[in-house]
Design a protein around this nucleic acid. Sequence first.
DNA 1: AGTGTCACCAACCGGGCC
DNA 2: TTCCGGCCCGGTTGGTGA
Length: 443
Amino acid sequence: MSTAEARLRDRIGGGRALALIDGNSFYCSCERVFDAKLARVPVIVLSNNDGCAIARTPEAKALGIKMGDPYFKIRGLCEAQGVRVFSSNYTLYGDMSARINAIYRDSTPDVEVSSIDESFLDLTAFVRRDRVALARDIRATVRAWTGIPTCVGIGPTKTLAKLANHIAKTVPELDGVCDLTEPTAYEHWLCRIHVGELWGVGRASLPKLEAMGIDTVADLRDIDPRPVRKALTVVGERMIHELRGVSCLGLELVPARRKGCAVTRSFSGRVTERSELEQAVAAHATRLGEKLRREGLGTDHITVFYHTSEHDRGEPMRSVSTMVTLPEATNDTLALIPAALHGVARTWREQGSPPWRYSKAGVVTVDLKPLAASQRALIGQLDRERAGRLMGALDVCNARFGRGSVVPARAGLAQQRRTWTTKFEMRTPRYTTQVDELPVAHA
DNA sequence: AGTGTCACCAACCGGGCC
DNA sequence: TTCCGGCCCGGTTGGTGA
């Protein structure tokens, strides 16, 4: 590419520079912060219920442990190879994430927190040389202050920043930073990265692109967008424009009000009793209420679902999903629980033999509304004042004594919770957020 | 014995309506 | 009266990433 073309392409990017910073094997790195013996040994963190591997250090990846591998299938390998295995500790990871984002905000206020371990930073105001220097500085600070290793990708659009981050992670010589606003680097890398690595290309889209003869990211950038739009919808077309430097995905500095909220869990065993299913559903409704109250949101209908496992081949299968309407929008646990239980009552079928063995249940809402502004019911109005005071007291107790200290009896008392509660058998302490779980230093 | 949770988007489809 | 097309809607489905 000529210099003139390079300048043009630079201008097409609008001179914008976005950085995507993320934590390397984030959950594993959080565990390593609190146990020096975990350095350089393979570490994995499991999903809820100790089901699958969802975070792996490079040492664990090298042993062939894949993202999403069921733990019961790799357990032998882990024991033989000395892999350190942890249940997920979201309280800890969430707190580490907040600390890291506070460090990012020391460099620029323009930060979009896009997930628990990734944030976009707008570096447009910095000249190119300073951007890379700043990226190295941020990495070093996060490492020094929190112990978490990170990588930084810089590009004129989100898609290119994300791609740059992937390159920074996989090419050791780059020392954790890749800048694709640099035209030479842009030309160099796009034709060397497989299109399957691109953000937005998953298991369904990849074969479609391959069928169109697309192999590298550069192939996708240079193809006629129309057939791609036909196969991958506007999402695919947007990807092409983003790769060309035309920004289609804006930076969202103010988190948008959430539109939906779900609480879903697999059971640690299989549930066959109606009373156990009811306990689980009531507990999920309780948690839903907590989440909605925290954000001042309410809902006037909830969907309750429960189903057997796809993996239980040869057993009777059943999947239930039902929507229950409330008289008006609420986040009162004592209104949500009866609604959720109504969903069970309406759909429960007496067990035959063999019985349905349910593996998972959940409570889901869409269309959340800010409660202050929501339409009041003409009939069946709920007593918001009274419910508000009661729920406020409940939330205060649970904040002080730990979640689940005070729960409605329908959600089950500790000694009744057997078959359905989630497993976390290998969870580390919540080092940074619970006083009684602080790490102890021995002098 | 046992295979995660959650949010969001886009497409699609059927029903109601004009 | 019936049919049709276009539009909006609500609900469902499938895809994605982390």
